[in-house]
Design a binder for these strands. Structure first.
Lengths: 346, 346
DNA sequence: GTGAAAGCGCTAACAT
DNA sequence: ATGTTAGCGCTTTCAC
């Protein structure tokens, strides 16, 4: 059908024959390509009249520079990738990363890994192929072998929140052990002896760190461990039975440490009105912490510090790929709000 | 210092002389450049032995394909940009967008506009210069004039949550008017006559839509309007005085409609125990809705539908830039959870 | 299947 | 101060 083909071609050219390039602008303005490039990049060594001519041509043609070509030629992209667990979740670290990157005139483009190892790999590799200058990664899972060739090929990467296990890679993480110790000591200081811990799945690095630290605290303190440490996936039923187990029996816990913000919410949901009778210290701050009575005492990580530190370290890595690997631990802070200052009733 | 320069040069070449390209791989494998390209792109017309030779060479050299060049040559990038108000906030629509894009084999790269008109412009223009195939935008502010030349130059864009005012652009938004009507009617059905509205700043499109719809409902119903509609920026003090004004005076409101999730939380925070005495219907669902007693009755938007619809419309726009502009309104749903089913006390 | 070569749109030597 | 030209790394024609 030659008629069809012809019509398609006509439609195509009518719609938009081709995006104009610098060459088109140069022709339109009657100047050299180099001059257009200079104007586009605000090079001061162009005469004002030519600048005007070029600007006019750009507007007339609706010319838009193509960064793909620019980046290809330049070698760098001025872009940092952020591969995080879930974009659409509250993530103050990501927020700090964006701010810090903006201050350094870098663009941050983010994507979710959805806590899926395969997806993480696809996202990171895609960012590598796009030659992002560096990547900030919230690593998930245990096997990051796919990173080895990328790193060998020159990838600059900083892990946040968790280290990349088994690989010698820059990272910036919170002091989980100190956080748990602080929470535990705080409750002990308020007279508690039977303290329970309800945490996330220990296959997750931070959850494992925190649970382990808690067990060590309890052992040091000489408190009971039986039925006091509950970890696993975050499911309402599991949390409910954990709460029941912790607060039931002949020697119920008088205080609970929760392993992260989601766990805190679920535990409070289960406790309902009883939340005034048991002391609680949560790990991670959240906007819900001050919504309930009493307000939730938490061990909060310094998100802003983590985010800006991550960008700083990434920039240093990009500038000098040979620099020694840096593993930074950021202190956490206890925020006393009421729930952790309840004395034991029994 | 010639010595310094020499050492720098040596370090530079030692560290990584140059990233290998397809040419290097071709030489290493003893095949043609064309063949490498075929192997990299999984072209089936290459003999298995050659595939193996190329794969080996790729591994030996740590070769990583450069998508910048590929995209430049191909014309398309297989990438959708998402310019949202705040990446690190809960955003179920963005989540749905990511899922839908993945299903269509498109990568989503997201950035925050921080509710800043200038930043929105920078983000969108940056995505345009990177030649993203399309952009999903949560538009802020009133002046989107900067989009005109981009659209003229061929930008495919779909607005979500709010329309791009003044521009004829695809968008998919919730049915704010129906949502407010539903909430109002629901409260009337439970015997309420004096119903207050506390909402966000009416400079924001959705806030304006909802407040206007509420005023219309109240007028139709013949209920009082004086001191019943409170809109403005989300600040604790303002919310507090709004709640006080609504519930105080000689004819206090017996029910409140809140304009969005943040407002709902703030209102509930102010009400405290009194929240059991006044009926509340919130706009927007949130995880906090089932955390408090009674659980919050809300008008929820269909985030999944909005997100997947946005991607679908964007793909259609990319495929056919000349297609008629599409403005889709997605129905909202009333979720009865208790707070909205309280009868008036007075 | 190979090999050579053009070209995507840009920047930066190197002219002038 | 402005023009000419090579080349970034890839895909794709075009012979062979």
């Amino acid at each position: 059908m030659p008629m069809m083909k012809l019509m398609e071609g006509m439609l195509g050219t009518t719609r938009r024959s081709r995006r104009p390039t610098m060459v088109d602008v140069a022709r339109e303005a009657g100047v050299a390509l180099r001059t257009v490039s200079r104007v586009v990049n605000n090079d001061s060594t162009v005469g004002p009249e030519l600048v005007e001519r070029v600007r006019t041509a750009i507007a007339a043609l609706d010319y838009r520079p193509d960064e793909r070509a620019r980046h290809l030629r330049l070698g760098v992209t001025g872009t940092l990738g952020a591969a995080v667990r879930q974009l659409s979740h509250v993530n103050p670290v990501l927020r700090a990363v964006e701010r810090a990157a903006r201050a350094a005139d870098l663009m941050v483009l983010a994507a979710s890994t959805e806590d899926d190892e395969l997806l993480e790999r696809q996202v990171v590799e895609s960012m590598c192929r796009r030659r992002f200058d560096g990547i900030i990664l919230e690593p998930i899972g245990a096997d990051h072998g796919y990173l080895v060739p990328e790193l060998a090929a020159g990838l600059s990467l900083v892990a946040v929140d968790r280290p990349v296990l088994g690989l010698d890679v820059d990272c910036v993480i919170s002091d989980n052990v100190a956080g748990i110790r602080t929470a535990f000591a705080h409750l002990v200081g308020h007279g508690h002896h039977r303290i329970a811990y309800i945490g996330d799945d220990e296959r997750i690095y931070t959850a494992r760190e925190r649970a382990t630290a808690f067990r060590a605290c309890a052992a040091d303190h000489g408190g009971p461990l039986d039925g006091m440490v509950h970890t696993g996936r975050i499911e309402p039923d599991r949390i409910r039975s954990a709460v029941r187990a912790a607060l039931g029996g002949p020697a119920p816990a008088t205080a609970i440490v929760t392993g992260n913000a989601t766990i805190s919410v679920e535990v409070l949901r289960r406790l309902g009105q009883d939340s005034e009778k048991v002391a609680i210290v949560g790990f991670d701050d959240s906007e819900l912490a001050t919504l309930l009575r009493p307000d939730l005492t938490v061990v909060a990580q310094d998100d802003t510090a983590i985010g800006s530190m991550a960008v700083e370290m990434l920039r240093a890595r990009i500038a000098d790929p040979g620099r020694p690997v840096d593993r930074v631990t950021v202190p956490v802070e206890l925020l006393r709000r009421g729930s952790g200052e309840i004395s034991p009733i029994a």
